[in-house]
Amino acid sequence: MNIVVSLKQTFDTEAKIVLTGGKIDATGVNVVINPYDEFAIEEALKLKEKFGGEVTVVSVGGDKVEASIRTALAMGCDQGVLVNDPTLENVDEWAVAEILAKAVAQIPYDLILAGRIAVDDGSSQVAVRLADSLNLPSVSSILKLDIEGDKATVVREIDGGTETLELSIPAVLTAQKGLNEPRYPSMMGIMKAKKKELKVLTLADLGISAADVASKMSAPKFSLPTPRTAGKKMSGEPAEQAAELAKLLREEAKVI
C-alpha cells in the first residue's frame, strides 16, 4: 500500500509573531512539522508496517522545508518531494492544492493523508481541495482508520459526537488529534534519513506556469491584535471574592 502524506512546515506553536514591513517575520522562529501532519505521518507509517508499500512525503515551500521532510524520513517515511519555486511567495490554498495535485499525480498512491488543519494560517483547506482536484473522496478530521482491501472505514469527529463512514480508496483523509501518538524519529532513523531521496521540483518540472496558479484571493493584510491587559483582581475572603466576581459579571460585564 503506497501512501502520500501532505506535509506543511509551520512555526512552532510557541513562536511569537512579529510583523516586519507588513509581513510575518520568520527570523529566528523555530519551524516544525505542522503538529496535525505528524498524526498523518504516524498513521501512514502504521499502515506501511501492516501492509507494506512506501510512504512519500510531499510539500510545497522553501528551502527550510527540507529539514521537516528529513524529519519525516527519519520517522520512517521512504522519500520526499518538495515543490520549491521562487514564484510561490504568495500563493493561496487553491494554488497549493493544484500544485500538490500535480506533484502527487507523479507518485503511485492508494491513500493520501494530511493534517486536518495547519496551525499557522489555520485555513483547513488544502487537503480537501487536493481531494477535489484529484477527484477523490475525502473525509476530514478522522479519529480512527481501518483499511480492508480497497475499503476504508473511518471514524471522524463531528460537532457533538462522532460519525462512522465507509469509503473506497484511494481517498484523502485528514487527521485529528487522537488518531494516534506520533513516534519520535529514532537515532537510527535520523542516520538513515540523509540517504533517502528528497526530490526538489520547480513549477516548470510539473508543467505549471505562474499564471496557472494565480491567487484567487487577495494577498493578506496582516495585523497584530491589541494585547489584552490585566483587569481587576478580587479581594477579601474567598466568599467575598466569589460574590464580588458574580456581581461584576452581572452588572459590569453583563455576561451572566
Partner: peptide, 13 residues
C-alpha cells in the same frame, strides 16, 4: 491566524 497571534485581512479575486 497563528492561533489568534495575528490577523489576516483578505478579499476574493
Amino acid at each position: 491566524i497563528y492561533g489568534g497571534k495575528a490577523f489576516a485581512e483578505v478579499t476574493a479575486n
